[in-house]
């Protein structure tokens, strides 16, 4: 009797395994949380040093247009403008293409067609960014130079390179969101006398809209954070862009260009950390936008 009682009171093997597994995952999650928190803390303290130790006015930092930290000029606006410029332009060019390809792959192409396109898109994702940059430098920059004048370096060249880089991101996520539209919406629409095109643009695209928006934001986040490829075609001079073909710098390209040439603890170094902080805040912002869209999509 007491033997049975003992057995019943003791945790079973399954319970023990369950507890063990739970402890391991809590431990791992804890480690990751600590890691992320310390990265944010580190960049934040380093990034704030410009304003606290070097007494740079944060407003002036964000609105000034002259960047030469070794001469105490820390206006980051040109980089901010250029970063947003290439990001928006790239997303603007890429989105229609991405939606068109995604519609083709999910709604129009037969199995063969999408089997043919799928690996191409996946290949585009896998190409290292330095390769994109190199192609941009040897093909896009001269082409821009002949077509639009200037040196060829600048926002336009950067946007074109980024367009190719974010296209697969936006396309694959858009494909996913189109595939996630339940087939009974299609049937309902067709049964009401809609043509296939009407069904696609009045029902499917609309139902998939939150997913497509998320895809675009992910693409923008990728464009905003891309450093290497952009650095190779943007011109790398921290000047306010005067046109789409004037050499300039993004936040990322300025960071990669200058990071080797500054001394820890000095203003030039701290100012770069402040650029990094802006990048971090922007990626947090992109994440929040995605969360917000997902939440609104669910409610609707």
């Amino acid at each position: 009797m007491s033997e049975i009682k003992n057995k019943l009171l003791k945790p079973s093997k399954a319970t023990k395994q369950d507890r063990f597994g739970r402890r391991i995952s809590v431990l791992c999650i804890g480690l990751i949380v600590i890691l992320v928190a310390s990265i944010i803390f580190f960049i934040a303290t380093k990034g704030m040093a410009t304003f606290i130790s070097n007494h740079v006015n944060p407003i002036k930092f964000l609105t000034g247009t002259d960047w030469s930290p070794s001469q105490k000029m820390t206006g980051a606006l040109p980089m901010i403008v250029t970063s947003f410029g290439v990001t928006l332009l790239a997303a603007l060019i890429a989105t229609p293409f991405a939606i068109a390809i995604a519609i083709y792959m999910t709604e129009i192409a037969n199995k063969k067609g999408s089997k043919f396109l799928q690996p191409i898109i996946e290949l585009l994702v896998g190409i290292p960014s330095v390769v994109y940059g190199f192609v941009g430098l040897t093909v896009v920059v001269p082409a821009v130079r002949t077509l639009f004048g200037g040196t060829g370096f600048g926002i336009l060249a950067g946007s074109i390179v980024l367009f190719v880089m974010v296209l697969p991101t936006i396309t694959t996520l858009t494909i996913d969101s189109l595939n996630a539209v339940p087939s009974h919406y299609r049937k309902a629409s067709l049964a009401l006398g809609a043509t296939r095109w009407q069904t696609i643009y009045k029902v499917i695209l609309r139902a998939a809209l939150p997913g497509i928006m998320t895809a675009i934001v992910f693409g923008m986040a990728r464009a905003f954070g891309e450093a290497l490829a952009v650095q190779m075609v943007i011109g790398n001079s921290a000047l306010m862009p005067t046109s789409l073909v004037s050499p300039t710098s993004t936040l990322t390209s300025q960071l990669t260009t200058e990071v080797g040439n500054t001394i820890m603890g000095t203003l030039p170094n701290n100012a770069l950390w402040s650029l990094a902080l802006i990048l971090l805040l922007m990626s947090l912002f992109f994440n929040l936008v995605v969360k917000y869209i997902a939440k609104r999509g669910q409610l609707k």
């Binding site: 009974h184 049937k187 629409s189 049964a191 009401l192 006398g193 009045k202 029902v203 609309r206 609707k300």
Partner: peptide, 30 residues
């Protein structure tokens, strides 16, 4: 054209994920 004359209601209720108004107005816009 045929399906505008011969409508269909399915086993599972399948409204579009839009407002009631947009659901009912859908066919009119078509």
């Amino acid at each position: 054209d045929l399906r505008k004359q011969v409508g269909m209601v399915f086993q599972q209720p399948n409204p579009f994920p839009f407002s009631v108004y947009d659901n009912v107005a859908y066919g009119l816009k078509l």
